[in-house]
Each structure stands twice: as structure tokens, then as C-alpha cells.
Design a protein around this nucleic acid. Structure first.
Length: 193
DNA sequence: GCGTCGATGGCA
DNA sequence: GCCATCGACGCG
């Protein structure tokens, strides 16, 4: 894919683990009524299907998880801890509930804001549950391919899923190596791709 | 710098 | 009762 182009549906129709890795370095574009916010994605996590104990779809198909069972390239946005919206991108195909949590980004265009962490990222980009199910090749929110070449990427276990038993240590978190792990995340498990 | 804890509401 | 979180607070 040539640099800086809008990512199309085919980009999202892949396993979440591949999508999560390839989303690092891409640019998230949020169009609001009066301005456009852009940010480079630096941290993601893959939730790889109904067999993944950390994936919300593990509990089955419910009103909340319905979007994950639908087509790729849609937003899955849900509320956590009563106050934070989490922004996920649906991957794979219909009836295979995989998704990628977007956990961190760097603002572009001299726009100053802290987007490190999924709660802050969603808030900073004005991504709320109103966008649940929205088409990410559409107008209010879309992605652009990497402006530059592929970055070095670290792989670590996912954050905040200690309940997920044998899945809690799976290497499904991807971080731009130039940004590194942020404070509070687990150390000692970094791997170079 | 690090551990602990409360906020706050939808969900199973 | 549990959470795919965050920020405030206390410590020494």
C-alpha cells in the first residue's frame, strides 16, 4: 500500500494479530464538525476470537459484542469502569469475532494532547459509544497507510487481563519500538519482530 | 519511582 | 461482582 493513502476494507479483513501489528505507524483521522484530528498509532492489542478468554466475545454473542461478529473495518466502542470508552477495530470476517484495541497514539499536526492509553486516546479523539459500529472507511473516522516505512515493533503480553488464565501471557500487544513501553506496563517481555 | 485505591456504570 | 483505566495519594 502506498504511503498516506486511505486504508480500504481489504486491509481490515485479516486476523487481528496481523492487523494489530500492521496498524502500528498508520494514521488515525477523526473528522469533527469544525476540524480534523490526526494521530499516529503506536500501541495496539489483538483479541483473537471466541476462544480467546480475554476477548469479550468469549462470553458469547450479546448486544455489546454484536459488532465484533459483523464485518471487518467497523468500530467496536464500549464503556469500561463506568467512565472510559475503548476504541477497537473489528478484524477478520463475519462470525469470527476478532478485534484490535487501539491503546496509544501520537498526535500529528502540532496538536498537543496525551493519547497514551486507551481511555485517553478515545477521549482525546472524541470517540464515544455513538461511534460503535461505524464504518472505518467512512467519513467521521478513517485510517491512512504509514507515511514512512515499517517501524521497529515490540511485542508483549496484553495489559489488564490477569483473569484470562492461559491467555494472559500471549504476546498480542504491539508497541512502536521508538516510543517504547510506557510506565506501568510490564517489563522484561519485549521481543523484536 | 512505585504500590494502592476510589470513581462510576454497564454487563453477565 | 467484575471490569481491555486513570489519576491522586502516600511513602520515606
Amino acid at each position: 500500500m502506498s504511503p498516506g493513502r486511505k486504508l480500504n476494507l481489504a486491509f481490515f479483513q485479516r486476523p487481528a494479530i496481523d492487523l494489530a501489528r500492521d496498524l502500528i505507524g498508520t494514521v488515525l483521522v477523526r473528522r469533527l464538525a469544525d476540524r480534523v484530528l490526526r494521530a499516529r498509532i503506536v500501541e495496539t492489542e489483538a483479541y483473537v476470537g471466541a476462544h480467546d478468554k480475554a476477548c469479550h466475545a468469549y462470553k458469547g454473542r450479546t448486544r455489546r459484542t454484536e459488532v465484533m461478529f459483523g464485518p471487518a473495518g467497523r468500530a467496536y466502542v464500549y464503556l469500561i469502569y463506568g467512565m472510559y470508552d475503548m476504541f477497537n477495530i473489528v478484524a477478520s470476517t463475519v462470525d469470527d469475532p476478532q478485534a484490535v484495541l487501539v491503546r496509544g497514539a501520537i498526535p500529528l499536526d502540532d496538536w498537543q494532547i496525551d493519547l497514551s492509553g486507551p481511555g485517553k486516546l478515545a477521549r482525546g479523539l472524541a470517540i464515544t459509544r455513538e461511534l460503535n459500529g461505524c464504518d472505518l472507511t467512512g467519513k467521521e473516522l478513517h485510517l491512512q497507510s504509514r507515511p514512512a516505512g515499517p517501524p521497529d515493533i515490540l511485542v508483549t503480553p496484553r495489559i489488564g487481563i490477569d483473569y484470562a488464565e492461559e491467555w494472559k501471557d500471549s504476546l498480542l500487544r504491539f508497541v512502536d519500538a521508538a516510543v517504547g513501553q510506557r510506565p506501568g506496563s510490564r517489563h522484561g517481555t519485549k521481543l523484536k519482530l
